[in-house]
Amino acid sequence: MRHWSASLLAAALAAGAFGHARADASLLNVSYDPTRELYRDVNAAFAADWKQRTGETVTIKQSHGGSGKQSRSVIDGLEADVVTLALAWDIDALATHGNLVPADWQKRLPDNSAPYTSTIVFLVRKGNPKGIKDWDDLVRPGVGVITPNPKTSGGARWNYLAAWGYAAKKSGGDAAAKDFVARLFRNVPVLDTGARGATTTFVERGQGDVLLAWENEALLALAEGGGKDRFEIVVPSVSILAEPPVAVVDKVVDKHGTRKVAEAYLQFLYTSAGQEIAAKNGYRPRDASVAAKFAAKFPNVPTFTVDEAFGGWQKAQAAHFADGGTFDQIYTPGR
């Protein structure tokens, strides 16, 4: 019995130590919540493309979760060859907390290292019974708003900043914006930890009247089993340009010897094939010709970026989501 368990333990240690580290063409893509469907398609297409170009077989493993949590796992030692997260701040953390990527990682790929974009839209119940048209309708009494927790979810931070940016633009002041966002969060009955959890709460559990969601997440909810008969999308008058970035994790690919294939993987996202897959999965492509092809799917919406409205992610994070930031102020003391 003892020998048996000892050898099992040894086997497990070996599996852990060498299992996925040394295989030649194997990548781990650590990503955020709503990209599950996107990367399922991208991985299949890239593997075929890579096989054709080099004759090598590449397998890509996926891990999904809240963006902040995923970033923290990579810092704690989850050996991601590439990260595809919800916002630049979470990849910045890889530079500041573990020296896993260089500080200027965002300049290494075109378009701020964000091969596709998205925006924040409203998903409402069929027929829009509460008549929700724009951001102002979200703070009306009696409207239930579903959004995840900005402390733990990347998507929720985009939601939060989109609402803030709208209010600041309209009334021209941070105090008014803070009041607006505070009133909005008073209408939130459930605060899930991740974007996908919030969607499940709204779609499956029937909570709330409107879901603040990534556009791709809202499109997916429509596409899933009878979603078109139950929900519709409302595009607000103005929203935020969400740029989910991607990066090769230098420290890991150098250890694994996978830099070449990891870089090719991310570059594949910028090819027209990669852009089409992104568009099909509800992400707005950067490539103009692909964008033209899918124009009907993505209505025109005026957007502002985090850099324009908040002076970049470092500043936005410190002002709004750090401990004691505006989000904490809104929530404490006592509602």
Partner: peptide, 21 residues
């Protein structure tokens, strides 16, 4: 990777967290 034993584990290429052990 930020933990107490991180240097030793890295030096010997032993993975414990985020793996089966």
């Amino acid at each position: 990777a930020q933990g107490l034993f991180a240097p030793w584990l890295a030096a010997h290429d032993v993975k414990i967290i985020f793996a089966v052990p």
